[in-house]
């Protein structure tokens, strides 16, 4: 049985426990705090937004969660399909890598970081399939075409390289490339950053549709409160590496408790 088939064959996941449990996560860069004492649960199908000013530790936290950075302290417990809750910080690297190409996805702010620019759109979408054992060219191509369609890229562009795509198309291609293996948890670092406003809106709309339809859980880092308003069920506000407030998105945005959140919300309203 291929890896894919095995993954498909495993039964429905437990809905009665968090998909991700983060406990006391901390990362410092020498004397500088990256993030400190971060704890939260993420439930299946839930989208969490992380907001905060530049340098507040959002990317550091996201990279620690996704296994790109090794935290100094803390646990990141993921509900794996095979063995249930496992601490991904202490898990052997091969297993963590397998997670990151099957159950996890990571959408970078800059599509160049998340795409292979020298490989066609179809090859970009197919890579994760091939990485988990897909060996039928026709099937891989059909799946790639389906995914290009889902992210509103014309199938006729399947053999074009991403360098021939607009920024918005590149970002949509990156999303297709990440979602093709049916991940359960998607990490996104400023997925709409660097795009102009009309393109952002379309991308957000698309993302929201995909997240809802696939029942994805996601953690979305952003500067943009409009993004969290649209995508996130829950919100975490960070300042100087610490979480200063978290709760339901509407609650936090409409009735911010912490002074810093109040400032953040009001500054947006004034802008």
């Amino acid at each position: 049985m291929t890896e894919q088939a095995r993954i498909r064959a495993t039964g429905p996941r437990a809905q009665d426990r968090p998909l991700l449990q983060v406990r006391g996560l901390a990362k410092t860069y020498g004397a500088r705090i990256g993030c400190a004492d971060v704890s939260f649960d993420l439930w299946p199908g839930e989208v969490m937004g992380i907001v905060g000013e530049s340098g507040s530790g959002k990317s550091t936290l996201l990279n620690c969660l996704a296994g790109h950075l090794a935290p100094d302290r803390g646990e990141v417990i993921f509900d794996t399909r095979a063995d249930g809750p496992r601490d991904t910080v202490t898990m052997p690297e091969p297993e963590r890598r397998m997670l990151s190409r099957t159950d996890w996805a990571f959408v970078h702010q800059n599509p160049r970081d998340g795409l292979r620019m020298g490989v066609s759109a179809g090859g970009n979408v197919g890579e994760r399939l091939m990485a988990v054992g897909a060996r039928h060219y026709g099937d891989i191509r059909a799946t790639a075409l389906d995914w290009l369609d889902r992210v509103e890229i014309d199938g006729g562009r399947i053999d074009d390289r991403p360098s021939a795509f607009s920024g918005g198309m590149q970002q949509r291609l990156q999303i297709a490339r990440n979602l093709v293996t049916g991940p359960r948890l998607v990490f996104m670092d400023e997925p709409t950053g660097g795009l102009d406003v009309s393109v952002q809106a379309r991308l957000l709309d698309l993302l929201r549709g995909l997240v809802r339809r696939m029942g994805l859980s996601a953690i979305v880092v952003t500067h943009d409160l409009a993004v969290v308003r649209l995508l996130a069920d829950r919100l975490m506000v960070m300042k100087s590496g610490h979480v200063v407030e978290q709760g339901l998105t509407d609650q936090v945005l409409d009735d911010p408790q912490h002074g810093y959140t109040q400032l953040l919300v009001s500054s947006v309203l004034q802008a």
Partner: peptide, 18 residues
């Protein structure tokens, strides 16, 4: 080290696509 060889087939995929 991790037997992460998806890329090898990407190379062959690109061949066939082109």
């Amino acid at each position: 080290a991790l037997e992460d060889y998806g890329l090898m087939h990407v190379r062959l995929y690109e061949d066939i696509a082109r």
